[in-house]
Design a protein around this nucleic acid. Structure first.
Lengths: 180, 180
DNA sequence: GAACGATATATCGGATTGATATATCAATTC
DNA sequence: GAATTGATATATCAATCCGATATATCGTTC
């Protein structure tokens, strides 16, 4: 699903600015879909040019004018067509995991630092998702919320239970050896 | 972690061709890092130009010649430097999840099909990871293997337990209504 | 007063994807 | 038997996207 389709999807929930679409993708949707402003704004421009969305400008005091986008009927049909195609494979890139694969090359204080940061990250993400009331969500979004909770909880629990694999494998720094 | 660094990392395990690096990223590393040939080959070319890897060509009967890349000492140092930087945020894009968020728009037979495919996908991925003997791996790779198992198992279990949210929400197709 | 964060829009150079191409061979399908 | 598919290998390209940056205003913090 490209960013144009995701924008159509978010607009199917209700009209929104480019900034608000980004906020949605940084918040409740963050665990399964991310996109940058560099992709969102050109996507909205293309959707507008193709007649799949409409836009109205609202001046604001003390802030840039808002451009509020809304889904057109053509856009709704295009969204349905895209959603009806079989989903492609997940795309994943976890820098933390990729770096931990080479943990034997890393100094143990670095590893401890990275692991601690990662655990905090899990807690932050879980707190964010737990702050959302599932009863107020339509079924699809409730499903996605529960999925995020399940996967973050599993990752968090795994890291807590197995961080010793990382701690024990990391390089002991020379200065620390001397202190020990 | 960009594709150049990942190539250095895979080469730190042992010399490899571009094709073999891709195979590593399609197999045991797939659940946390993916990259295309379109990125791997230019990355290897750049690494070669920068002196971070060396290459030797081996002719093969019935197949293209092999270009076998090996890490240089300069490359090893560059890898260590990159790995020592704090990991950036995970990048995730799950088309399945993104589409399920808008499940109310989809026909129920499509949803059932997508869910069935997704469950098969989990079984396939889990079978692949379970076929790897963790005792033969160094600690970092053992950790990553276990992480993949934990997260796929959680996602699989969640989908099995909660697919009813999706089934119940999907649109009932008109033709099916008439048949019921 | 400078830096930072929030609300907003927008752009750009570099990174990456997915498709495609080339080559050869073996296995499978029609 | 020919066509298709899949595997082993290398390589490239147009489209998509990222991360950084810019602009503007305001409020908060150091």
């Amino acid at each position: 699903m490209n960013v144009k389709t995701m924008c159509l999807g978010v607009l199917s929930i209700g009209e929104a600015t480019g900034y608000e679409i980004k906020k949605q993708l940084e918040g409740p949707f963050h665990h399964f879909y991310q996109a940058s402003f560099g992709a969102i704004y050109p996507a909205l421009s293309a959707l507008l040019a193709d007649g799949l969305v409409s836009v109205r400008e609202e001046p604001q005091d003390g802030k840039p004018d808002k451009k509020i986008y809304a889904l057109s009927e053509t856009g709704r049909a295009a969204l349905l067509a895209e959603l009806s195609r079989p989903p492609g494979p997940d795309r994943v890139r976890s820098e933390f995991l990729a770096q931990m694969v080479f943990v034997e090359l890393l100094a143990d204080d670095l590893v401890a630092d990275f692991v601690a940061t990662r655990l905090e990250h899990y807690e932050t993400q879980l707190a964010g998702l737990r702050g959302i009331d599932p009863d107020r969500l339509p079924p699809g979004r409730r499903f996605a919320l529960g999925y995020g909770l399940a996967v973050y909880e599993a990752g968090n629990a795994y890291l807590r239970a197995n961080r010793h694999l990382l701690d024990d494998a990391a390089r002991t720094a020379p200065a620390r050896d001397a202190a020990d």
